[in-house]
Simulated scan of single mutants.
Amino acid sequence: MSANHQSHTKRRLISSYFTTIISISLVLFMLGILGLILLNTQQISNHVKENIGFSIILKGEIKDVDINQIKKTLDAETYVKATHFIHPDSAAADLKRDLGEDFISFLGYNPLLPSIDVKLNADYANTDSLSIIEADLLNNPNIKEVIYQKDLVSLVNQNVKKISFYMLAFSGLLLFIATALINNTIRLSIYSKRFLIKTMQLVGARHSFIRRPFVLQGIGNGIVSAFIAISLIIVVLYYFQQQYPELIDFRNFELYGALFLIMIILGILISWISTNLAVRKYLRIQTGDLY
């Protein structure tokens, strides 16, 4: 009977240990994912902004040499990320495919003009910069007009600012929830050992002596959980780097190193504080209240 009881107790302790580790790991993993998003907010924002661009509509009688000159001038500008010349025939083929009709046969000629699509660097993806760029480009006699969606540019910039604010607020909330979850997990783990704590106290062990093994185990759990969470984060990073290489840069070792260090510190700190508080609670409680 005693052997069965010991075996059952051992299984419960092992189960409690793994439950604690998994719970803390998942919470730290969520915090790590949020940290990744926050650390890459600027890069994500730049990626979105750099998909904003404009089209330069050239005059129909423009010569190839003038087109090349305009394109070279644009490529040398600091606000330009990339340019792409679109020949009227290519534009007509694309439009024909989209419409599903041969509009050239109907009209008898190709009404489309040559154009250059320009992608902007993120710092210039705003209405003020675009207005200045547009005015400068229209001084060129070979450029007929500059087309871009002003409302879309304003909307993107406004949404980027809003998302950044909401992410910071959500980070604070998630950190609070994560701390509460880890605290509850550790308290449940300590609860299963409350009789052991009280027994040690009754035989005269000092509070610091009783707390020490629990605190050390809590810190160990925090470290193990942090490394498990970091391993999961690395897997996620690798996946997204394969899917979106422009968003994830593995060369930024300092950034990711700082994130992983923060995760380890959080795992240790929250586990240490929660374990201390939980053990202290059962040291102060009366024996009759343990049941």
Rank of each mutant, 00 (worst) to 15 (best):
L36G: 15
F170G: 11
W272M: 11
Y282C: 04
Q43H: 10
Q43R: 15
K150T: 15
N110L: 06
L95F: 14
K198M: 13
I186F: 12
A229M: 07
N276C: 00
I52H: 04
V203R: 11
N110S: 03
A93Y: 13
L95D: 06
I57L: 15
K81F: 07
D128W: 02
I182S: 05
G35L: 10
G204E: 10
L188Y: 10
L202W: 05
M30Q: 01
V235S: 06
P245T: 01
K281F: 05
I210T: 03
Y148F: 13
G35K: 11
A82Q: 15
Y282V: 06
Q158W: 05
N159H: 04
M200T: 09
K71L: 07
F253R: 08
D289P: 00
M30G: 14
Q149D: 15
S129L: 03
L58Y: 00
V160D: 07
F85M: 01
V146Q: 06
G32L: 01
F250L: 14
I265Q: 02
L99Y: 13
I230A: 10
N276P: 00
R280K: 12
K150R: 15
L38T: 08
A93N: 14
K72R: 12
I219R: 14
G108I: 05
I22Q: 02
I177T: 12
L237A: 06
I62D: 12
V224F: 14
D75Y: 09
F18Y: 04
P88E: 11
I52S: 07
T275P: 01
I37D: 07
D249T: 02
S271V: 07
N157M: 11
I133W: 00
K198H: 14
E77S: 14
K198C: 06
S208G: 08
A205W: 03
I190M: 10
Q158K: 15
I248C: 06
G222K: 08
D98K: 15
L232N: 06
N4Y: 09
T19V: 01
F170R: 00
S45L: 04
K71V: 05
L290A: 08
K144H: 12
V224Y: 12
S271M: 11
A278Q: 05
L181D: 08
I210F: 06
S55P: 00
S90A: 14
A258M: 10
L28R: 02
I230D: 08
F29Y: 13
K96T: 15
G288Q: 09
I270S: 02
V203I: 15
M263E: 12
A205D: 10
L13Y: 08
N140P: 08
R12V: 04
P141V: 09
K59I: 00
Y109P: 01
T20R: 03
L237F: 14
Q286I: 01
P114T: 00
L266T: 11
I268Y: 04
W272C: 05
L58P: 00
L112Y: 10
N4A: 07
Q243M: 13
T41F: 14
G172Q: 09
A178W: 03
S231W: 06
T73E: 13
S45N: 12
I223K: 02
A180H: 09
Y148R: 00
H207M: 05
